[in-house]
C-alpha cells in the first residue's frame, strides 16, 4: 500500500512537472504507433474491402491468413521480425539502406505494422461483409462505377471500419513483447511507454511506472475518443 501511495504521489509530480525523459518516451510511442497505424490503415482498409467484396483465386487463403494474423501473439511477431532483421537474418544480411535495422524505431514500426495490419484488414473485411449485399446492385443500377461502389459500401460500413482502426491502434500502442524484442528498450532511442513501464517496475520505480501507465491509458482513451468523434461527424453529414 505504501508503495502504491508513494508511487502515485511521485507519478503526479513527474506528470505535472513536465519531465523531459517522460516526454521523450511518450513522443516516441506516439510516433512509432502513429506511423504504424497510418501504414496499416492505408493498406488494411483497401485490403479488407478487396477481400470482402471480390471473389478471386486464392481469396480463401488470403482471408485465412488475415484472420490468423489477427490472433497472432505479438511477441511471436517480434521474434519473427528480430530473426528477419538480425545481421544473419535474410533481410539483415542484405544490409540495404531501406531495410530497417534492428533496435531502431523503424524496426519497431515494422513489427507494429505486422500486428496492426491484419486487425485493420480483418475488421474491415467483416464490416463490408455486413453491408446488405443488395445495396451493391442497387447503387450500380444508379450508375456507380466500381470505385464508387466500393466507396459507398465502405461508407455504409463506416462504423465497423472505424472500429477496425481503433482495434489496430489498441493492438499496438499497448503492446510490449514485440517492441521489446526488436527495439531493445534503449534509453532515448527505442524506449516506449510499455517497455519503460516494464523496466521501471522491475527497478522498483513505481512512481515513474505508474505515471507512464497513466499516460498510456490517457493516450488510448483520447485516441479512441478522437476516432469516435470523427466517425460521429461523418455519420451526421
Amino acid at each position: 500500500m505504501a508503495n502504491f501511495l508513494e508511487g502515485f504521489h511521485q507519478s503526479l509530480q513527474l506528470l505535472l512537472g513536465g519531465d523531459s525523459q517522460l516526454a521523450a518516451i511518450v513522443l516516441l510511442s506516439l510516433r512509432v504507433s502513429g506511423i504504424a497505424l497510418a501504414i496499416s490503415t492505408a493498406i488494411g482498409i483497401p485490403l479488407g474491402a478487396l477481400l470482402g467484396l471480390t471473389r478471386f483465386y486464392g481469396r480463401p487463403l488470403a482471408v485465412a491468413l488475415v484472420y490468423t494474423g489477427m490472433a497472432f501473439p505479438p511477441v511471436v511477431v517480434g521474434l519473427f521480425v528480430y530473426l528477419l532483421l538480425s545481421r544473419s537474418g535474410p533481410l539483415g544480411a542484405l544490409a540495404l539502406g531501406w531495410i530497417p535495422r534492428l533496435f531502431t524505431p523503424e524496426a519497431m514500426i515494422l513489427a507494429q505494422v505486422i500486428i496492426a495490419l491484419p486487425l485493420v484488414a480483418g475488421f474491415t473485411l467483416a464490416a463490408v461483409q455486413g453491408v446488405d449485399p443488395a445495396l451493391r446492385l442497387q447503387i450500380q443500377a444508379l450508375g456507380a462505377s466500381r470505385w464508387q461502389t466500393t466507396g459507398a459500401i465502405l461508407e455504409e460500413a463506416r462504423v465497423g471500419v472505424v472500429a477496425a482502426v481503433v482495434a489496430g491502434f489498441g493492438g499496438i500502442i499497448s503492446e510490449v513483447g514485440a517492441v521489446m524484442l526488436v527495439g531493445g528498450n534503449i534509453a532515448g532511442q527505442t524506449r516506449v511507454l510499455t517497455t519503460a513501464i516494464v523496466l521501471e517496475t522491475n527497478k522498483g520505480n513505481f512512481g515513474l511506472a505508474l505515471a507512464l501507465g497513466g499516460v498510456l491509458l490517457g493516450i488510448a482513451f483520447a485516441a479512441n475518443l478522437l476516432i469516435l468523434r470523427l466517425e460521429g461527424r461523418s455519420f451526421h453529414s
Binding site: 446488405d132 443488395a134 445495396l135 446492385l137 442497387q138 447503387i139 450500380q140 443500377a141 444508379l142 450508375g143 456507380a144 462505377s145 464508387q148 459507398a152 461508407e155 455504409e156 455519420f235
Partner: peptide, 30 residues
C-alpha cells in the same frame, strides 16, 4: 449505358444518410 437507365427494386436498400442525400446520390455519382 448503365447511366442512361435505372431500376427501382422491390426491396429498396437506402444509404445511411438523409432522404435528400439518397435522392441526389445518383446525380453525385455523375
Amino acid at each position: 449505358m448503365r447511366r442512361r437507365v435505372t431500376t427501382v427494386f422491390q426491396h429498396p436498400v437506402l444509404l445511411r444518410r438523409s432522404v435528400e442525400a439518397n435522392v441526389t446520390y445518383g446525380l453525385r455519382l455523375r
